[in-house]
Design a protein around this nucleic acid. Structure first.
Length: 291
DNA sequence: CACTTGACCTGTCCGC
DNA sequence: TGCGGACAGGTCAAGT
């Protein structure tokens, strides 16, 4: 589910809500949703306070005063929802918010803070995980060492995009964009949206994409990620932010999950196909396969 | 090594 | 209404 804009939206919310909160209790399933030993979980969580909330690619990091960090991947259906309980007396959440409706049967981990606020980690499909490790070791995990550049950092240039993509010159451009070691944070929604923006067919081999189009693609990626963050991300099905609310980017999507509707640029009917094993949405006119 | 496919899970939707 | 199958925002391991 969550791609860069969704994870960033959750991060920003948690960064506003969590720092200074002291963990008083934790309940969790002991399967892969939180594989740490229960004794370690209590030792390094209970009594610790939240220092900061960071993001790298689609991974969230909650840094604690115990010099341990909760490293979290939401995968397809993960949610992190903060319920301030009586601390936010009268603040009111919209009736569509999940706050006040948790825990539910998808809740895997519940952190309770001194004062009664709670943080729920929900994950319907159980692909996501939460792991506790020393803060200093986080950069050493394999994923952090291999993951590509952050597309919204100022040093992400079109030349960098070109060079990273060419590591997979014989694969199709969509598979390359989804490869987190090429660029961090792009998933199925924003791959389709940015390829539409650059008028590139997702089946085009990386080596066959003209340089001029890579420049356009670079700008399209940056623009679509920024727009989605501005709209609070995409809520196709389960995604919600740290306060349990859906994002509105899907109203602004040009092709993703819009098969049968018309391309906003040329009016051609949008098609759905399968590329890199994923449902893929294109305008067959704007994104013609070049011979 | 480069690249593709299947597996991991639960829930929902669609066709018969 | 019920049942089977395909599919859903992401990554890995295993396969070619």
């Amino acid at each position: 589910m969550p791609e860069l804009p969704e994870v960033e939206t959750v991060r920003a919310g948690l960064a506003r809500l969590l720092p200074g909160q002291v963990i008083a209790d934790v309940t969790h399933d002991h399967d892969k949703s939180f594989p740490n030993a229960p004794a370690d979980v209590r030792q390094f969580l209970v009594g610790a306070s939240v220092i900061d909330v960071r993001r790298r690619a689609k991974v969230l990091m909650i840094d604690l005063s115990s010099e341990y960090t909760l490293v979290i991947h939401l995968k397809m259906t993960g949610q992190l929802v903060f319920d301030g309980a009586h601390e936010h007396f009268g603040a009111g959440h919209p009736s569509t918010s999940l706050v006040g409706k948790l825990p539910d049967k998808s809740t895997r981990v519940t952190l309770t803070f001194a004062g009664g606020a709670k943080l729920f980690f929900n994950d319907q499909r159980k692909f996501g995980w939460m792991r506790l490790m020393p803060t200093i070791e986080v950069p050493n995990i394999d994923f952090m060492k291999k993951v590509g550049p952050e597309p919204l950092e100022p040093d992400f240039t079109w030349q960098m995009l070109r060079d990273r993509l060419l590591r997979r010159k014989n694969s199709n451009i969509k598979a390359a964009l989804l490869d987190q070691t090429v660029i961090a944070g792009i998933g199925n929604i924003y791959a389709d949206e940015s390829l539409w923006g650059a008028k590139i067919h997702p089946n085009t081999l990386v080596k066959d994409v003209p340089t001029a189009k890579l420049r356009v693609l670079h700008q399209a990626i940056v623009d679509v990620l920024r727009l989605s963050i501005d709209k609070g991300g995409s809520s196709n099905q389960t995604y919600v932010d740290a306060e349990g609310n859906k994002g509105s980017y899907m109203q602004f999507a040009n092709v993703f999950r819009r098969e049968g509707q018309t391309c906003p640029r040329c009016g051609t009917v949008i098609e759905k196909l399968r590329v890199a094993g994923r449902g893929t949405h294109i305008c067959p006119h704007c994104q013609r396969v070049k011979k």
